[in-house]
């Protein structure tokens, strides 16, 4: 455990990272190109790793330092690398991706979601430590914003990264409230990589067979359509 001035400094830094983390969820709503979405996701994942590092240092927790390392490796290096290799053409194309809801309207919804998330979590925050106060509501808000981002995106790559952003939100809250064994952290990190690999291969197959990764345009399975 770190005490005194250093502890306060680490908490303040975590608060700063938390603020940037929730902003990163807002930024994820804006990009109109897949490449931009990936860059924002990497920045968000870096902030998650940074928060885990600060909390690990603060609490003297080896598991949290391991989370920071795994997040950094998996989400800022391996996953972007896998996506770039698997979906190179889609990521390099400057094609503007379609948004189901305009960016200003989405930002408004995100603000409402953030307020609601803080209201939902408020009863849990009595008498808890400062880092839980920061990470839990922000992680919950980013999870919910991620679900909304997923719902309004119509392209494969942004949808896939929105799922991973939901994962980031859940783990941002998780690192402050739940300590897990190293094996769980390792399994969760590997699982994230496998999920992205499988979904990226599926997206590439869709691009090969359908001609684009605009998954929002795939509507042949609507109820009432005779097979």
């Amino acid at each position: 455990m770190t005490g005194g001035f250093a502890a306060n400094l680490l908490v303040d830094l975590d608060a700063l990272v938390g603020g940037l983390f929730i902003l990163s969820a807002f930024f994820l709503m804006a990009p109109r190109q897949a490449q931009g979405f990936l860059k924002h996701f990497v920045r968000q994942s870096f902030l998650l790793a940074l928060s885990a590092l600060l909390l690990g240092w603060l609490h003297g927790s080896v598991e949290l330092l391991l989370v920071a390392l795994i997040t950094l490796l998996a989400k800022t290096l391996i996953i972007p690398g896998l996506l770039t290799r698997t979906l190179e053409r889609e990521l390099r194309s400057r094609r503007e991706v379609e948004l189901a809801v305009s960016v200003p309207a989405s930002l408004l919804v995100a603000i409402v979601i953030t307020v609601l998330a803080f209201v939902f979590v408020a009863p849990l925050l009595h008498g808890v430590g400062p880092t839980v106060d920061i990470n839990l509501p922000i992680g919950f808000a980013v999870t919910l914003i991620g679900v909304y981002t997923l719902a309004v995106r119509r392209e494969a790559v942004p949808q896939m990264l929105a799922v991973m952003a939901i994962d980031n939100g859940a783990f941002f809250a998780g690192i402050a409230i739940a300590s897990s064994s190293a094996i769980v952290e390792l399994a969760a990190g590997l699982e994230g990589v496998v999920v992205v690999l499988v979904v990226a291969i599926l997206a590439r197959t869709i691009a090969q067979h359908v001609g684009s990764t605009a998954v929002g345009d795939l509507t042949s399975l609507k109820e009432g359509t005779p097979s």
Partner: peptide, 17 residues
């Protein structure tokens, strides 16, 4: 492919929540 995409994205999101 449409069915597989929906299956993957919706159920992975659910489990992540």
């Amino acid at each position: 492919l449409e069915a597989a995409w929906k299956y993957a994205v919706i159920t992975i999101t659910g489990a992540t929540v």
